[in-house]
Amino acid sequence: MIDARESDVTRSHVVRSDSHDNRDWLRDQPVCQLLSQHHIAHVEIIEASTSFGMTRQDQSGTFMLACFGGSGMVLADGGWKKVKAGQACLLPPFVTNGMKAIGSVPWLMCGVRYLESREVLPIVSPGSPVLGNYDPRPLHHAIQGLHAECSGSSSPAVMHLWTELIHSYVMRFAQPHQADTRLWKLWNEVHKSLGHPWTLDELADRAFLSKEHLRKLCRRELGRTPMQHVTFLRMQQARHLLSTTDDKVETITRQVGYTNPHTFSNTFKQWTGWRPSEIRK
Rank of each mutant, 00 (worst) to 15 (best):
F68C: 08
G53Q: 08
Q37Y: 14
D28C: 09
R11F: 15
A48T: 05
I46S: 01
E6I: 12
C32P: 00
E6L: 11
L65G: 11
D21R: 08
V14W: 00
H38A: 14
R11E: 14
A4I: 11
V9R: 04
Q37R: 15
A41D: 07
D3H: 09
I45P: 00
E6W: 13
Q37D: 12
C32D: 02
Q57F: 03
H38T: 10
S7L: 09
D8C: 05
V14C: 04
V31H: 01
L34P: 01
Q29M: 14
H20A: 12
I45H: 00
D28I: 11
M64C: 08
T62N: 01
R23L: 05
A4L: 07
R16C: 11
V15T: 11
R56Q: 14
A66T: 12
I45R: 03
T50Q: 12
D21N: 10
D58S: 13
M54T: 13
Q33C: 10
F63I: 08
V9S: 02
L26V: 03
A4P: 00
N22W: 01
I46V: 15
D8S: 13
D21G: 03
T10A: 12
A4N: 04
T50S: 08
V14M: 05
D24H: 10
D24W: 13
R27S: 04
G61I: 06
T55H: 09
H42P: 03
Q29Y: 05
S7T: 15
M64D: 01
R27L: 08
I45K: 00
M64I: 14
D8T: 15
D28W: 03
D3E: 11
R16W: 00
Q59L: 13
M64N: 06
V9K: 04
S49C: 08
S7V: 14
R16Y: 03
H13Q: 14
S7R: 08
R56E: 13
H38L: 07
A48C: 07
H39Q: 13
L35G: 02
S7D: 14
T55A: 06
E47P: 02
H39C: 11
S19E: 09
D18F: 13
S19D: 08
S17M: 04
G53Y: 06
L34I: 13
Q37W: 06
T62W: 00
V31A: 01
R5Q: 12
E47L: 06
S17A: 14
S12V: 10
E47I: 12
T62L: 01
D3L: 10
L34V: 11
H42C: 12
